[in-house]
Amino acid sequence: MAASLPSFSRFALLALAFALGAFLQAQGLLPAMASYRGDVVYLVRGHMVLAAVSGALAIAIGIPIGILLTRERYRVLGATLAQVVNLGTTIPTLAILALAMTVFGLGAPSAIFGLTALTLLPIVLNTAAGLRAVPRHLVEAARGMGMRPGQILLQVELPNALYVILAGIRTALAIDVGTVPLAFLIGGGGLGELIFTGIDLNEPAMLLAGAIPTALLAVLVDWLVGLAQYALVPRGVNPLR
């Protein structure tokens, strides 16, 4: 099961790519798209930098916040933070980007800020949910055997929550990569340039030259984090093996 799933999805992906290729060829779009190759290579790099920086920031900020939310002594603070985070999920992506722009102005910093804020939410929520799902008696056993709070977190809580935490990161990064095109609207760069210009100029080949790499990047990131999930989560608590 665990082994057959990736190979099945890979097969499906290949089939889809083939169908898409056939369609594009029939429309005569493939040669037109190829003419944007130079732009695509350049923009993919910018796209990846935006996604990587905002993703890394979101992980670096989101996991500690998730941990904080579940600490006994920050219970009150935790509840408030959880409210804020939940409120965050209801604000539309474009609104967040627009807000960021009013603070940081046009350019990459606004884009990174907005993307980070957006990516943060699933990471925080899953980290907290994963930690809350660790059975209380495990923590109690650890305490009774003389582990300090930091040791309990590192040796018991995080390893047992890791699968759920990585699932959050997986979702978050896929959303992140898929949202980077919007960064173009506030001057952040990335493949959005081809997509939105393609729309404005009513030029499908240009649009697709931006959209297809974006989709592929999202799939790639999802696959990479899935690998990490398989490799990093201890076998005793890893549903994949």
């Binding site: 495990l138 109690e140 056993a141 003389g146 047992n160």
Partner: peptide, 22 residues
Amino acid sequence: DVTLRRSIGYVIQQIGLFPNKT
């Protein structure tokens, strides 16, 4: 407290083995 607990064996009803450890 921590030193004390390390010098006392503790067994609970739910067993409490850590599933992430061998």
